[in-house]
Write a protein that binds this DNA or RNA. Sequence first.
DNA 1: GTACAATACTTTAGGGTGTAAGGAGTCGGC
DNA 2: GCCGACTCCTTACACCCTAAAGTATTGTAC
Lengths: 264, 264
Amino acid sequence: MVVFAGQGDARRSMELLWGPRVVAPRTGPGPKPGLSVEAIVAAAIDIADAEGMASLSMRAVGERLGRTAMALYTYVPGKTELVDLMYDRTLGELPSSYPVTDGWRAAASSLADELWNLHLRHPWLLQVSPARPVLGPGEFHVQETLLSVLASTGLPLARVRWVVSALFNIVRGSVQAAAESRQAASETGLSEEDWWGARSALLGELVPDLTARFPTVSRLGASVEAASGDEPYLEREARLSFEAGLELLLDGVEAAIVKASGPR
Amino acid sequence: MVVFAGQGDARRSMELLWGPRVVAPRTGPGPKPGLSVEAIVAAAIDIADAEGMASLSMRAVGERLGRTAMALYTYVPGKTELVDLMYDRTLGELPSSYPVTDGWRAAASSLADELWNLHLRHPWLLQVSPARPVLGPGEFHVQETLLSVLASTGLPLARVRWVVSALFNIVRGSVQAAAESRQAASETGLSEEDWWGARSALLGELVPDLTARFPTVSRLGASVEAASGDEPYLEREARLSFEAGLELLLDGVEAAIVKASGPR
DNA sequence: GTACAATACTTTAGGGTGTAAGGAGTCGGC
DNA sequence: GCCGACTCCTTACACCCTAAAGTATTGTAC
């Protein structure tokens, strides 16, 4: 399921995102709060990291904090907003300094790397829709960092923007394979090799004319299988895909720079 | 929630994917089947297209076919497999002929376009995990088409592979914004403009130092707002992002070709 | 023509989910 | 000392997927 930012409580939601994270102790009457928004968000992130977004329920979060699910509703309007907070807080983890002293390409590469690792550490990020942005400090932080590093190419901001979005897409796309393969392995208890072995045996049996119908795929499949050693497969695969995609993209940027500076 | 291919019924699942789509009428005893796998898949696709993956439930599919949810379990092992079928059948829609007579770049571009439109027509495709591939005919078909078109660049298949994956990522990533913005608009009843207007007003109020903290983003935001007319915004935005990303990528491919053919 | 077996479909039920509603309990301020 | 505000919990509902068991329909064999 894709989660959108709630509409009714737009203000409340924004206040949670941008407001102070350490709330001053209340002065009014009533029992002292035993929890806090940040504690809830942290617990939720822990769960999502360890067991995946599918296992993230209000009950689970409450349990981890020694409360019931409903106790959370005192602090957070609903699950949607909680997920938004998780997303934004996590993006905020991204380091912000990428010196361009070694050139824009080195800076962009290491930034992309960091972004990749961040997503790999928190794969559930991929399940939060980037369509209607959360518009929290973390998201702004990431955009600012990406934009400013790539602006150092000298390209106009209006073009840098597309580079940023393409870069983001490549990171998200490639990390998805890695993360979900990992998650699938732990959920089903089947290693990649076992799974793949069983599947390709079935394929050969049920689709005898596979190589005839899909010659190029088959050619590739054969070469890949031959080349693969016995180390974790799909994850390395995803990393390679990321690196290759990044290189292609940055080559494209370089070409754009040359073109922009005019044919000499 | 991310859906993985079931493990227990791997064989059954593969048979459904690769088996004949028009089942021969049964001869034995028992009532005649009133439904069929293909009819169920089609109904499910209709629902997902119209109301999104979140609204796709076994009940909803059954209801659309005049049955209960449980009736579907005669034809399909479970929801997981149904989603796999939906995914694979939909990918099968992609046209397969992309003549390279006008050069590889034109062919790749129009193929990418087609892929983009396909995803836009069926945005729920993005919610099916590509990690553990479905390994159905549709998926093979798409891979085969992409690979063979890009193999016409003359690059070795081992590199073409990464180009394909990057291309796929760019398509998926950029279409996500468009599709989900559309979906969000229809679900919340809020147009992009209204939503964005409300949000940015809130931002200005709650975060007065926004432009100071995120100068580059703000600079970009200002220029974009100024440039935007009064036509549907985020969707055009996503399309532009797609086109720009594609150009960057293909430029990168061109650079790779030049590099591979050796410095003259 | 009737009994049987196989299949399609429904009903029932159990364990999930998010969260609305209302009832406890706890504390600061008057 | 008590009121009111506040946190937190229990209960309840609506929805989800699907296992299990029951019912209806059909073709075949005797």
